[in-house]
């Protein structure tokens, strides 16, 4: 059991919706329903970015929202991970050449996990959040290597 074991068992997620069409957002809520029950793994949606370990971003990002997203990212306390849900945030998706958008999310904030799909299945979203463990595991190795 590593130093950051409790991290893997308790990931709190904050959900920021950019220019999303609400499709991905509904699928995110679906992960909390009895059928998928993400709380089994300690995954919980929280209402404030200060509490969150994982930032879920959905949708293509319009110009107005870009610096707000940056602020949300800055407000989260370390260590943190970012998961992008849906095609729009990953690559621009349907709206890739829109003049209103500032491009994929990884040009605004550092992204750790991409969950493609339009919208992705709830299983894929849970898998994406769980993959944020990989980042924490990397951190764990750094911690152990440093001592």
């Amino acid at each position: 059991m590593g130093k950051l074991y409790s991290f893997k068992r308790s990931l709190w997620v904050f959900h920021a919706s950019g220019g999303s069409c609400n499709g991905c957002d509904i699928e995110i809520i679906a992960t909390l329903t009895p059928r998928y029950d993400a709380e089994r793994f300690g995954i919980k949606l929280v209402g404030s970015p200060r509490h969150a370990d994982v930032l879920l971003v959905t949708g293509a990002i319009p110009r107005d929202f870009a610096d707000k997203l940056r602020r949300i990212y800055d407000q989260m306390s370390d260590p943190k991970a970012v998961v992008v849900v849906g095609n729009c945030g990953t690559s621009g998706g349907l709206f890739y050449d829109s003049y209103n958008l500032v491009g994929p999310i990884d040009e605004i904030i550092p992204v750790d996990v991409y969950v493609p799909g339009c919208p992705p299945r709830p299983e894929a979203i849970i898998d994406g959040v769980v993959k944020a463990w990989l980042k924490i595991e990397k951190l764990e190795k750094q911690l152990e290597g440093g001592e």
Binding site: K3, Y5, S6, R9, S10, R50, D53, S77
Partner: peptide, 16 residues
Amino acid sequence: RQPFWDVGKLLLKETV
């Protein structure tokens, strides 16, 4: 055991 993990994790995080 979930609340114990939650507290353990919160103690590891940065305090802003």
